[in-house]
Amino acid sequence: MINSARQQRLIDEAKALLKQGKVRWIIGFEAGSLKFTTTPLITADAGDTSRLVINSFIVNNLSNFLPELEGRIGIVAKGCDSRSIVSLIQDSKVRREDVVILAVPCSGLIDLAKVEQLIGKDRDEIDAISRKDDKVIVTLAGAKREFSISEALYDNCLACELPTPQEYDILLGEPILPSNEPAAGQKKLDELKKMSPEARWQFWKKELERCIRCYACRNACPACYCQRCFVEETEPQWLLPIPHWQDNLMFQITMDIHVAGRCTDCGECQRACPVNIPLRSLTKEMYDIVADLFHFKAGMDKEALPLMTHYEQEEAEDLIG
């Protein structure tokens, strides 16, 4: 099948890059230890590349690892990841010549939490999950059930604007156009916008009350790369480390503002959250505001100046207007 062919091509390319000394590291995905999972493979060993996979569960935004490795890096990137790489280049966190982008045109990833909801079973109780065109097929106790992608893909994948990386060195497979389901990807936000401010406040209070302040949302985010995060400052102490919901809210809001213009809507923050806080509803709103006010979309053009480092005259009018 197409998928296995491009997986083989990825393995060959990655192996060659390491063997010929063109890169020091390969960052990609390998099969995870649990059902329907993958896990980042970060290796300098050409022998390991045979474990690389491409499938509907390659969730992590691997660009997150770029700033911490030394030497030239070959990296597997979906559309959103490639935007994060470009954004890191714009911010001078990564140099273009130091990365070899192995681009994976991506038709969207399967959201296991949604599948669990649809089926009423946990992921490890499901026999198989596969993708066929605009359907997701779930096999449970031998019986097959079909769902439309708008029910079973991640919201950010439904709203994806760049499934095929624009910036790459090696393209693995045919380019893919954006899905026709942006409305489905916006559903959760629409629901929230329809609420009264009071109801919305109560909603976020309840959601943020269970935040354990594990910072997985921040650490999984490639746009959050500060050496020292404001939450860790003690002089002044912007925020207490005690996870009261008000501080949790301040943490999220400040983080959103900090990544404005760099968030590519990859969805990692929400996916990383162990207690299911719908964080994308905040980041995507910020993403849309940035698009409206500044006509700026993160990681689309590596030559563009980073959003927060310059301003255009018309912005001021929009802002004040």
Binding site: P40, L41, I42, R213, C214, A216, A220
Partner: peptide, 13 residues
């Protein structure tokens, strides 16, 4: 440790 992102999940939970 290469792929660990130093979050608090595996300890806090």
């Amino acid at each position: 440790a290469a792929k660990c992102i130093s979050c608090g999940i595996c300890t806090l939970l």
